[in-house]
């Protein structure tokens, strides 16, 4: 039995080393410690907007949309023109937003649905970076699709 436990321990150690090594080498490795602390919606100081307001801002090109979902979900469908800043990997994707917008730009952050809190976390991150006009579109991509608004893939 001791030998089985020793083999198991060795397998776990090799897995840790392999996982860490690949994550460091790969171009899209994730941080070893990500900010996954739950943030309650009522703690957010940002304003919420409805799907119609979001659509209005989008159609009038009055805001830059930020998609807080993972890059794989983003690739499957997003609000047209949205930039992807996935929760947990904000530092890597933030430069794209920073390169195209000033700190006074109107930003609308969304994720998958009303129950998703990724948009809150990314909005808080953007606020810490210096953006002053951040709106949370709470309905997410689900509500956008339900309304029949256009989608980009």
């Amino acid at each position: 039995m001791k030998k089985i436990l020793a083999e198991s321990a060795l397998i776990i150690i090799v897995s840790i080393l392999l996982g860490c090594m690949v994550n460091i080498i790969r171009p899209h490795g994730i941080p070893f410690v990500g900010d996954w602390r739950n943030i309650s919606a009522k703690d957010s100081e940002n304003g919420y907007i409805s799907v119609d307001t979001a659509h209005s801002l989008w159609s009038n090109r009055q805001a830059t949309f930020v998609d807080a979902r993972s890059d794989s979900d983003f690739a499957q469908g997003r609000i047209p023109g949205a930039l992807n800043i996935p929760r947990g990997n904000e530092n890597m994707y933030f430069p794209i937003l920073r390169g195209t917008t000033g700190f006074d730009a109107t930003i609308v952050v969304y994720c998958s649905s009303e129950t998703c809190d990724d948009s809150i976390v990314v909005a808080e991150y953007l606020k810490r970076q210096g953006y002053t006009s951040i709106n949370l579109y709470k309905g997410g991509i689900v509500k956008w699709i339900e309304k029949g608004y256009p989608l980009e893939k």
């Binding site: 996982g19 994730i30 410690v33 890059d71």
Partner: peptide
């Protein structure tokens, strides 16, 4: 897709927030 899996780990409430990414990297 380690980030996508990290989100699953987070939703699973499998690990404390500071261990989510490490779990997603190693598992």
């Amino acid at each position: 897709d380690p980030l996508g899996f990290a989100k699953i780990v987070h939703n699973f409430q499998l690990a404390p927030w500071y261990m989510v990414n490490f779990t997603a990297i190693v598992m």
